[in-house]
Design a protein around this nucleic acid. Structure first.
Lengths: 204, 204
DNA sequence: AAGAAAAGTTGAACCAATTCTAAAATTGAG
DNA sequence: CTCAATTTTAGAATTGGTTCAACTTTTCTT
């Protein structure tokens, strides 16, 4: 039943997100005034607030798309990982990090992270936490997969290791987006170094 | 040379911090209006902005005091740690976590963390990052101490392990303050479980 | 001790997010 | 085609953090 009303609604959603994405990137989160987003999306301010509870939720919608793409890309690695624990982890983490600045600027990430801790019960706050959990699960799934293949010792607590690796990576990523001059290769190298101890410990 | 001006300045600082601490706890960060803080501190709004760049910096001053106390408490553990890697880590982390809600409510922590990612270049943003770094260093120092004692293998990258442990703990703490119903014992147990893999790997 | 300079204080005005209101437009059902 | 329900709209009102130009107080100089 995709009536006209449904289609228009979807179209307005898309227009708002497109306008917001463009303006967030151009002017930054704070700099992108709701009025400007409304104008560019060709809707009224009221309509925006009808679709999203607040400015943060608009950013939230954008972040969710990004993270979902990343999760999807990660599935491939989990399904058939490189035949070496260190490389397997590095490949998965590489996908997360390399994708990260495709749609979102560092400033957008900072805002998104801030909002998700500030308002953990808002729609976006909950969604963000859920996404983090899925990323953690994906890393744990990779460890499990490596255990099946026999690259990781069977007696290792894969869940705990997955959490450790994700939490460390996430914290490193937070510090990364906080420093505008920080670069991806250095970030990846630092994480590799940190993981090395773990990799040595869990490998067969 | 403690002239009148100096004393008045110190006094106003104290009054603002006292008023803000009380109001943040009573009304929450958002609920504590600058106007109310000014009234309770018996200064004008303008004066508050003369002493702190923005509302977040007031919270920042309170957080910094708290974290500095924690760092101090931690020094004792590093100086003479329990004679067991797992216990040593658990003791240090225990100090961090148990202290954490002395002055600051979970809501205040959430706001502080949010502000520090949102405005990494503000005075508070920089201070917060520096404090995180010191906590990391303290954990690394503990590992180094354990290496001296001979409880941790000498060929372990202590810095990397310290970072890994701090980043994981910090992320767990962030999730902890995001959920009002979360309790400290469960948090500590979860972190112990995560650290177990590492402890096993680095012990002699 | 007077006068000038420096430093600090004040609160009204500003700005942007959000809420609210009443009117106008659109849709789907009968 | 008509009408009732639902949405959208423009804009005014509200709110609370932040800024700024005028005013005070403190300190310095002679």
């Amino acid at each position: 039943m995709s009536g006209l009303r449904e289609r228009q609604k979807a179209d307005r959603h898309r227009r708002i997100i497109d306008a917001a994405t463009a303006l967030f990137r151009e002017a930054g989160y704070e700099g992108a005034k709701i009025e400007a987003i409304a104008a560019q999306a060709e809707v009224s301010i009221g309509t925006i607030y009808n679709y999203y509870q607040n400015k943060g939720d608009i950013l939230g919608a954008i972040v969710s798309m990004e993270v979902n793409e990343v999760l999807n890309a990660g599935r491939g690695v989990v399904a058939s990982p490189p035949a070496n624990v260190g490389d397997a982890l590095d490949t998965l983490i590489g996908i997360y990090i390399e994708h990260s600045l495709n749609y979102l600027s560092k400033e957008m990430w900072r805002q998104a992270m801030a909002i998700s801790t500030q308002l953990p019960d808002s729609p976006f706050g909950q969604a963000y936490t859920a996404l983090d959990r899925e990323l953690t699960r994906q890393i744990s799934a990779l460890i499990a997969r490596l255990q099946e293949i026999g690259l990781v010792r069977a007696d290792i607590d894969g869940t705990a290791v997955g959490e450790l690796i994700f939490n460390n990576m996430n914290m490193m990523f937070i510090e990364f987006v906080k420093r505008n001059e920080a670069r991806i290769p250095e970030l990846r190298a630092a994480i590799r170094r940190q993981n090395r101890v773990l990799v040595a410990a869990i490998g067969v």
